[in-house]
Computed example of a mutant assay.
Amino acid sequence: MSHFAIPSHIISGTDVLSESAVYLKTMGNKAFIVTGKHVAVSEMMTKLLNMLDEIKITYKIFDGITGEPTDKMIEQGVELFKSSGCDFIIGIGGGSPLDSAKAIAAMSVNSGKISDYNGIEIKGAIPPLAAIPTTAGTGSEATKFTVITDSEKGIKMLLKGDVLIPQLAIVDSSFTFSSPNSVTAATGLDALTHAVEAYTSKKAIPLTDTLAVSAVKRIMKYLPIAYNEPENSSAREQMSLAALEAGICINNSSVTIVHGMSRPIGALFHVPHGMSNAMLLKECLSFAESGAYEKFANLGRETKVASESDTDEEAADKFIDSLQKICDICEIPTLEKYGIDKEEYYSQIDKMSQDAVASGSPGNTVRDVTVEDCKRIYKNLYK
């Protein structure tokens, strides 16, 4: 029997933050708010704090998440949480603050270093969690995963456990309007990667298939609009919904080769996660395609880039080509244009390939993925 897990409560739409008050009141009396420097002084934070004041919940703000989270940031957050007297946690921001909120919650009740839990199922009660995404992409508001960089080993650690799924997900698309184009592109393509990988994963189940196809269709239609028309409220709402759908999908059927190979690039060359996914999208899924022609073909037909008269292989090829087209629309750079030195990149290919396979994600791909396969894909990527 397949297991399907989602947050206890999901509130989604435009300008829906106030609807979360009744649920936040049940979570505790003092909130530990995890965020970054920008969101900490934003109108979004003002709205949240005003609502907490109205429902008589006090709070402590930790705005120490600067960029993608590291073990050092989490240690700092845990120390502050333990001394703050807070009894529940709210993460607000992009994927980094949401992932950090989960990690802080987990490490506030577990001993040792966060690196001790890399790849290990985290169990036992943790402080209640609420997640408020301000980007449409990571889906962290709906997942049992958190990705934290081990600053000593130079790897991205994957922590997991059903206890990390936020009890409350507040998906207010009005909070995404301030995202710059580069963030809209990277997070939107991250969500697209989630949906496609979850749909073609060995762990896919009928419930995730339904949501994954829905998410892919929304993103292929609305991401170019959100990118070119940032104030388009309909496109923003559709993208927030798609990111949520895709997050639910990876929570239950996981990610595959793209994420496995993306994390080492991010850890070693500091490429934003969604952007490194997008850079790898066509190369990795072209590799995976032959193991799931029928599913890739269905995505091609559902998104109208392929027709019923196309063979599955033809329809699958057309869908893979459409992924590159949407990356081009969103102006995703090559590794070279991003500024990564070729010699330095090649010197890290062996390590990146081993780290990718060791992460476990490539093992969910419908084709077997070896270290040598990863080396070949990494080399093709720079070409």
Rank of each mutant, 00 (worst) to 15 (best):
N364R: 05
A142W: 00
A358V: 09
K56P: 06
A191Y: 01
P69V: 05
K383F: 10
Y382Q: 14
T334I: 12
S254P: 02
K379E: 15
T176Q: 06
A40K: 02
D99N: 12
A242M: 08
N252L: 07
A242V: 04
R263G: 03
V371M: 06
C284E: 09
I114G: 05
T365L: 08
S100M: 02
P224V: 00
K295M: 03
S290K: 10
Y378N: 12
V196F: 01
E245W: 01
I122G: 10
F287C: 10
S179I: 06
V78Q: 04
K295Q: 09
I122T: 03
M220E: 13
K202P: 12
D99T: 04
E79R: 11
D321W: 04
S359N: 02
A142E: 11
S173V: 09
T303K: 00
P206Q: 13
Y222R: 06
A316E: 05
I10P: 12
F145H: 13
Y23T: 14
I104N: 06
I61D: 06
V213F: 02
M44V: 15
A21F: 00
D209Y: 03
G161H: 13
M220H: 06
N251K: 03
K25M: 12
I257K: 05
I332A: 03
P272L: 00
K60I: 09
H270K: 15
N228F: 02
K203A: 15
F32D: 06
I349L: 06
K30P: 04
K153H: 05
I126K: 01
I377S: 10
K156S: 12
P97D: 10
E289C: 12
I340R: 01
S286Y: 00
R263I: 02
I148N: 07
K221E: 15
D190L: 01
Q348D: 05
V366N: 11
A31P: 02
V147E: 14
E68T: 08
F81L: 13
L335H: 02
E283A: 09
G137T: 00
E245N: 11
L192E: 11
V357R: 04
K25Q: 14
F145W: 13
H270P: 11
T208M: 09
Y227H: 04
N380W: 00
K295S: 03
H259W: 00
V216D: 13
D87W: 02
S359D: 07
D310M: 02
S276N: 14
S179C: 15
K37H: 05
T26Y: 02
N252S: 06
G260I: 03
S240W: 01
V271L: 13
M279L: 07
A5C: 12
P362Q: 08
A195T: 04
A101V: 11
I248T: 13
S178E: 11
P127W: 04
S42K: 01
